[in-house]
């Protein structure tokens, strides 16, 4: 893998004096994919938005491409959780994708320029949605929506892609759909990615690194290093369990009681 792309040292993120997460230290190299894992309220979104340059109140060191994130926003694409979108606005899939490229070109966008439309179409093709470009975003399936958002992120030609829970609220087949696009992005475009998730299992195939946070850094390393019983039980309780199947790590957290200890 290439040069160091993100450096965080003792990074602490605030909301009006309230510490959302503290003392985060890690490095990520270019081309790597990081899975950011943690329970509700752990600070995943806060960390992601800070790296994206969208949240600016933090202390400690944070360099992205060697600079403070706000200075390199053009190189970063942030994909919010899809429930934060207002679907009353009847935008077509292609219009949503075009958003990713429009704002770097000018201030007024009465019409979408042809060149942007073409790029948007290509991005939709890349995520396998070339045929639904004129469908309304609100009418797409969950997996399709997430892929449209991925296309929007790609059309801005990012070098760093930040995805907030791209798999939550998706059924298993839609998850496969989205993960295969993420794998394709990694394989063909070699874009560095940080993906937050509650469930690492569908993503361990593409995750080079895993970070576990819970208001502070619990562990950072390769999946083998982090997804271990003694580490994940610290956050998810004594029933959490990590297993290795072939080359891949799997992790059972939350309500999955694989020992059946609580059964009568």
């Amino acid at each position: 893998m290439g040069e160091i792309l993100i450096i965080a040292e003792n990074l602490t993120i605030y909301y009006d004096g309230y510490r959302a997460v503290e003392d985060i230290t890690f490095r990520l190299s270019s081309g790597e994919t990081l899975l950011l894992l943690g329970p509700n309220g752990a600070g995943k979104t806060s960390l992601l938005r800070t790296i994206a340059g969208l949240h600016k109140s933090y202390t400690g060191k944070l360099l992205v491409f060697g600079k403070p994130p706000a200075e390199v926003k053009d190189l970063i694409s942030y994909v919010p959780q899809s429930h934060s979108l207002n679907e009353r606005v009847p935008l077509k899939a292609i219009e949503v994708v075009a958003m990713g490229a429009l704002y770097k070109r000018g201030f007024i966008h009465f019409n979408i320029p042809k060149s942007v439309l073409k790029e948007a179409e290509e991005a939709l093709e890349f995520v396998g949605l070339g045929d639904i470009k004129n469908k309304r975003f609100a009418e797409l399936s969950g997996g399709q929506k997430q892929r449209v958002l991925l296309a929007r992120a790609l059309v801005s030609k990012p070098k760093l892609l930040l995805l907030d829970e791209p798999l939550s609220a998706l059924d298993p087949s839609a998850r496969v759909e989205v993960v295969s696009v993420l794998a394709k992005i990694k394989r063909e475009m070699r874009i560095t990615m940080i993906i937050t998730t509650h469930d690492p299992n569908p993503l361990t195939e593409i995750g080079d690194k895993v970070m576990l946070v819970n208001k502070r850094l619990v562990a950072f390393g390769t999946p083998e290093e982090v997804l271990r019983d003694e580490i994940i039980t610290k956050v998810y309780g004594s029933l959490a369990k990590a297993v290795k199947v072939g080359e891949r790590m799997y992790c059972f957290i939350g309500d999955v009681h694989i020992h059946g200890r609580e059964r009568r």
């Binding site: 942030y78 935008l91 958003m99």
Partner: peptide
């Protein structure tokens, strides 16, 4: 329309 749809997205894409 875009800021109504996703203000943070507009911000994130410059």
């Amino acid at each position: 329309l875009y800021v109504s749809f996703d203000a943070e997205g507009v911000e994130a894409y410059s």
